[in-house]
Nucleic acid binder design. Structure first.
Length: 469
RNA sequence: GGCCCCGUGGUCAAGAGGCCUAAGACAUCGCCCUUUCACGGCGGUAACUCGGGUUCGAAUCCCGACGGGGUCACCA
């Protein structure tokens, strides 16, 4: 049997990290077993589904690199199929028309709650179908079995059992004629030959009733695995108040897709003490049975650590391609200045995100007039004028083609030696003059990146500022 | 409230009855390195929710309590 999994989001909002992790697990499972992966958009809720959400989900999937083999399928395009099946079920009693008013249902619910019972449909319309005329408005309900228990083996949670007496006859076609989720998923997973349904924990309770529908349809019941939720740093349910929750937000905040994927795969799953996984390693080692049953808290700190790891270890050219996006996002024009891959190499150890990196490299592309006040206060001393003069003099002698960190480094050493002061007393004023700030990569590398003309000009500029102060 | 699920450091987790005096990672603290900021290196603090069983032996199996979450729609 060829494994076939799917990711089936409802397009009522962006793709959040919980959904992304479920998609990842589903994707990994398929890839691990050499199976295929389907993307299906569950848009039966006409009210809440939006094209914007569909676009955001697809963009997120692509950014993450979760490629699908089939789809995207849309449930709204399959209404004929669902209705055909519902009509067949209606014909032989596997489903029935329900004429109960919203008011009656509401009252029923109130009464049950008042009695401390679980609110559920009482099966009122199971009989007496002939009392109603065929054109009277009604919805259609699935005739759920009354007796027995539904049992299934969940690949993550183990054996789960729910008594049929806990279930009621759920609506499968609304009064407006549109089929509902619980029916559509079953039909789709059946029609599409899905062998393993990997989805969020919030669906465990739906599973038994869906299994009853599979059986009513004479369909083979697939395997199930329900992935637990992701919580915020504080252990509470993840929400906007926790900052980033959507995949696209992580892109915007400067995370590499590799980092998010690696973080997500480790959140709720582990393989020995390994933390870093290449995609191939994940595919090879991933096992759904080892996914944690308990909910896990999203730890942005660890994500940052992973992000740094990938910024440092991935091919600088590749990282630069992502950095370019952020440079544009920050409005920095990189057409004149160092190559982005060189920026990546210089800043990889000091930036936790690409957004950071873009901000930290601004002075390499743009001139400035303001200096970091705290840095100036701490490092600009009485001898700073002399330091800058001596540096300028020696730097001017370095030609454009020799303008490399290895040739720039001795300048700082020489000035420090000549003046009999520590390297920091030379490097820091120079750094502030060249970058305007107290933080940058090694001063030699920094000057190389800023470039000869800009470096010399900035030292002169600082010198003037000092003289006038 | 009914039903379902979950419970190892602050966080993610390893752990499948003896190898547990409980890995590793992130975070945190200290030291070292150091021209800034970082990186890096070394070391420290820190956990089996509780109570009963079963067993020669329990983090691991069973029961219960407590705590947390999910779900109870003509949403998905």
């Amino acid at each position: 049997m060829t494994v076939k999994t799917r990711f089936a989001p409802s397009p009522t909002g962006f793709l959040h990290v919980g959904g992304a992790r479920t998609a990842l697990y589903s994707w990994l499972y398929a890839r691990h077993h050499n199976g295929s992966f389907v993307l299906r958009i569950e848009d039966t809720d006409l009210e809440r589904s939006t094209q914007q959400a569909i676009d955001a989900i697809i963009e997120s999937m692509k950014w993450l690199g979760l490629s699908w083999d089939e789809g995207p399928f849309y449930q709204t395009k399959r209404f004929d199929r669902y209705n055909q099946l519902i009509d067949e079920m209606l014909a032989d009693g596997r489903a029935y028309r329900c004429y109960c008013s919203k008011e009656r249902l509401e009252q029923l619910r109130q009464e049950q709650m008042a009695r401390g019972e679980k609110p559920r449909y009482d099966g009122h319309c199971r009989c007496c179908q002939e009392e109603h005329s065929p054109d009277e408005p009604c919805c259609v309900r699935f005739r759920n079995p009354d007796e027995g228990v539904v049992h299934f083996h969940d690949h993550i949670r183990g054996d789960v059992e729910i008594a049929n007496s806990e279930l009621d006859d759920l609506v499968i076609r609304r009064t407006d004629g549109s089929p509902t989720y619980n029916f559509c998923v079953v039909v789709d997973d059946y029609d599409m030959g899905i062998t393993h349904v990997i989805r969020g924990e919030d669906h465990v309770n739906n599973t038994p009733r869906q299994i009853n529908i599979y059986k009513a349809l004479g369909a083979q019941v697939p395997e199930f695995a329900h992935v637990s939720m992701i919580l915020g740093d504080d252990g509470a349910k993840l929400s906007k108040r926790h900052g980033a929750v959507s995949v696209m937000q992580y892109r915007d905040d400067g995370y590499l897709p590799e980092a998010l994927i690696n973080y997500l795969v480790r959140l709720g799953w582990g393989s020995g003490d390994q933390e870093i996984f290449t995609l191939d390693e994940m595919i090879e080692k991933f096992s759904i049975d080892h996914v944690s049953k308990s909910a896990s808290a999203f730890d942005t700190n660890k994500l940052k650590w992973m992000n740094r790891h990938y910024i440092q270890t991935l091919d600088p050219e590749y990282v630069a391609s992502h950095l370019e996006w952020h440079m544009k996002d920050q409005g920095i024009d990189c057409s004149h200045g160092p190559k982005l891959s060189a920026v990546v190499k210089a800043l990889a150890e000091r930036a936790e995100t690409l957004k950071d990196m873009a901000q930290q490299s601004r002075y390499m592309y743009e001139d400035f007039t303001e200096y970091d006040a705290a840095a100036v206060k701490k490092w600009f001393k009485a001898n700073t004028g002399e330091v800058l003069d001596r540096c300028l003099e020696k730097l001017q002698q370095v030609s454009q083609e020799d303008w490399k960190a290895e040739n720039l480094h001795p300048v700082v050493e020489q000035v420090a030696a000549e003046m009999e002061i520590g390297m920091g007393k030379v490097g820091m004023p120079l750094r502030i003059a060249v970058t305007g700030r107290g933080v940058s990569p090694g001063i030699d590398v920094t000057m190389e990146l800023v470039g000869r003309a800009r470096t010399l000009e900035r030292i002169r500029q600082a010198r003037e500022k000092l003289a006038s102060a």
